[in-house]
């Protein structure tokens, strides 16, 4: 029986018979088949645009123009070379790696420290501090854009460290990413540290742990699952960030990947070199794809659990 014949024989659902073992089996199989059809169609809708872009990265521009929908004739690796050098994707990639390495480390370390203090201690102003961070979750980023530009520019005039800061500085951008990731990370980790059992902390104190070694040797290792989820969450967020670098990184050589790609689609010099653009897109996608495939379960649970907290 072919697929279409099978579909033609589907029963009208409004007159579907009540459940009777034996009879329902066949009807159920057909419904399941239609079910599977829907799932497959959405799967294709999800993947095909991205697969098309990846295939296009291996075509020559000549082939792309005449046969945009076909499979590549050969593997035009030259696209990747052009993207990396001429389109400056190599530089953008390095910028992204530098910024994300710094911002991810700072976000995790400073958030974990803060969250631990807020979750396990009561001190003067601890409530206020918690709500100040919580407020950051509600603000739309667009509200901050104008002052942020000037705040970052002014860091360039700071004594001693000023020359490493200011606009177009990797350090500044990493600090901005850190600041904007902290509300969520602190909020989530505070909830996580609160769930850790008190008995372990008390045992640590009995054994003569100092505050610091209790945090560093006992509590932090116990919070590892939460820390890993959030590190993945923040890695993806920082790697894909667009609006913040657009405001802060105005020089071409300082752009990060997402920004560089957006620039390429509009820059006149590269308008006719589609396949190099797609190659650049694949280069930008690769780290995310690798992280996603390697940590797929963890990424899904990390991103969705964050929403449910």
């Amino acid at each position: 029986m072919t697929a279409t014949e099978l579909l033609d024989q589907r029963p009208d659902s409004s007159t579907a018979p009540p459940y009777r073992p034996g009879h329902a089996r066949r009807a159920d199989r057909i419904v399941s088949f239609i079910n599977g059809g829907f799932l497959l169609v959405w799967g294709l809708i999800t993947t095909l645009p991205l697969v098309w872009a990846m295939l296009s990265a291996f075509k020559t521009n000549a082939q792309f123009r005449v046969d945009p929908m076909g499979l590549p004739d050969g593997l035009a690796w030259d696209n990747f070379a052009r993207a990396w050098d001429e389109a400056n994707i190599g530089q953008y990639f390095v910028n992204s790696v530098i910024v994300v390495t710094m911002s991810l480390a700072m976000t995790m370390v400073f958030s974990a420290m803060l969250a631990y203090a807020l979750a396990r201690y009561t001190f003067i102003g601890s409530k206020v501090l918690y709500y100040v961070f919580l407020a950051g979750l509600m603000f739309p980023v667009f509200l901050a854009l104008v002052p942020l530009f000037f705040v970052v520019r002014d860091t360039g005039n700071w004594p001693v460290i000023g020359e490493f800061m200011g606009l177009n500085s990797h350090v500044s951008l990493a600090l901005v990413y850190t600041a904007f990731s902290m509300p969520f990370t602190v909020f989530f980790l505070t909830a996580f540290f609160r769930t850790l059992p008190d008995t372990v902390a008390e045992a640590g104190i009995m054994d003569g742990c100092s505050h610091f070694s209790l945090f560093w040797r006992v509590m932090l290792p116990m919070a590892k699952p939460g820390l890993v989820s959030l590190a993945l969450f923040n890695f993806l967020g920082h790697w894909n960030q667009y609006i913040l670098p657009v405001v802060i990184m105005t020089e071409d050589d300082k752009r990060v990947l997402a920004q560089g790609l957006a620039f390429l689609t509009t820059s006149t010099g590269f308008r006719a070199d589609w396949t190099a653009l797609f190659a650049g897109l694949v280069i930008a996608l690769l780290p995310v794809l690798i992280v996603y495939i390697a940590f797929q379960k963890k990424v899904q649970s990390g991103l969705t659990a964050g929403l449910l907290k």
Partner: peptide, 20 residues
Amino acid sequence: LTVPGAVIYGYFMFSPYLQA
């Protein structure tokens, strides 16, 4: 524990919102 994070957040995120 709290000062480094609070300073970064305060300077780069919270103060821009108030200024805005």
